[in-house]
Deep mutational scan, measured.
Amino acid sequence: KRLCLVCGDIASGYHYGVASCEACKAFFKRTIQGNIEYSCPATNECEITKRRRKSCQACRFMKCLKVGMLKEGVRLD
């Protein structure tokens, strides 16, 4: 089984260019469509796991980008 490159949960397929789970796919889409900017309360190096993926949105979004999710893949309509 493929794992989500962002949080390590089971991937539902390839989304925005990267093997990812439904939760991270939806999080990435919401962030881009809403043009949301997050800031990390710590040092921008929070560990993102299935259990902790909700704890820091800034680091989760940075990890989405780091593993290769493409903003261009999100439709803005």
Rank of each mutant, 00 (worst) to 15 (best):
V18P: 06
D77K: 10
H15T: 05
A19T: 10
C59P: 02
A23C: 14
K50T: 12
R52N: 08
K66T: 14
E37H: 08
I32G: 05
L65T: 04
Y16K: 06
V6D: 00
T31K: 05
M69L: 04
Y38A: 03
Y14G: 12
N44K: 12
M69T: 03
L5I: 06
V67P: 00
K1P: 01
G73T: 12
A23F: 03
L65W: 02
T49K: 11
K54G: 14
L76Q: 12
T49C: 00
S39D: 15
A23H: 08
C64P: 02
I10S: 11
K1R: 06
I32P: 03
Y16E: 11
S12W: 07
E45K: 09
Y14I: 13
A42S: 10
T43Q: 08
S55V: 15
R60M: 14
K54N: 14
R30Y: 01
A19K: 09
S55A: 15
V74P: 11
H15P: 06
L70Q: 11
M62E: 13
L3Q: 11
E37W: 03
L76R: 10
M69K: 00
V6W: 01
V67L: 07
E72C: 07
G13S: 03
F61P: 00
C64E: 03
A58H: 04
S39M: 15
R53T: 13
K71E: 10
C7V: 00
A11G: 12
R2I: 15
L3V: 11
I10H: 12
A58L: 04
K66C: 05
G17A: 10
R60K: 14
C21W: 00
Q57E: 12
K29N: 08
E47I: 04
C40Y: 07
R30Q: 14
K54W: 11
I48Q: 15
R60F: 15
A23V: 12
A26S: 06
I32L: 05
Y16P: 05
C21E: 01
K50G: 10
C7E: 01
R75C: 14
L5A: 08
S55H: 15
C64N: 04
G17I: 01
R2V: 07
G34R: 11
L5N: 07
N44I: 13
K50D: 11
R60E: 01
A58F: 05
G34C: 07
G73H: 09
I36K: 09
A11S: 13
F28Q: 01
K71F: 06
C40T: 01
G13Y: 01
R52C: 01
A19L: 11
L65N: 01
I32M: 04
C64G: 03
N44E: 12
V18M: 15
L76E: 14
Y38C: 06
Y16G: 10
